[in-house]
Write a protein that binds this DNA or RNA. Sequence first.
DNA 1: CCACTGACGAGTG
DNA 2: GCACTCGCCAGTG
Length: 110
Amino acid sequence: MSGAGRFQTIYAVIARIPRGRVATYGQVARLAGIPGRARLVGFAMAALPDGTRVPWHRVVNAQGRCSPRGDGGPGHMVQRLLLRRENVRFDRGERIALERYRWKPRGAGS
DNA sequence: CCACTGACGAGTG
DNA sequence: GCACTCGCCAGTG
């Protein structure tokens, strides 16, 4: 994408995550063509406007948890609720079984 | 220009 | 499985 919008590529990847599935920051970065820049994905997420159509809640960290926002906001709580609404189960430690819910892109995705 | 920070990940003990 | 360290890159003071 344009030099000014590297985020667009990231958002495009996230938009492809099917309902009821989750992807990790590193996974998104990799699919966006910027392997190792997981933090940049997080930065792009924080830059998302309120009411965005991008399913940001389907992106979790490698531990299968909803990373709390630096702002200390209820972001991770909302995320948990939205995922719960998509039949995604959380274990006792507020963690998701990635081996079960991880999104596996196919065909033109990989 | 330098130092610090951050919705992270992989490696190590 | 958990705590700590280092590496990444962009933005900010």
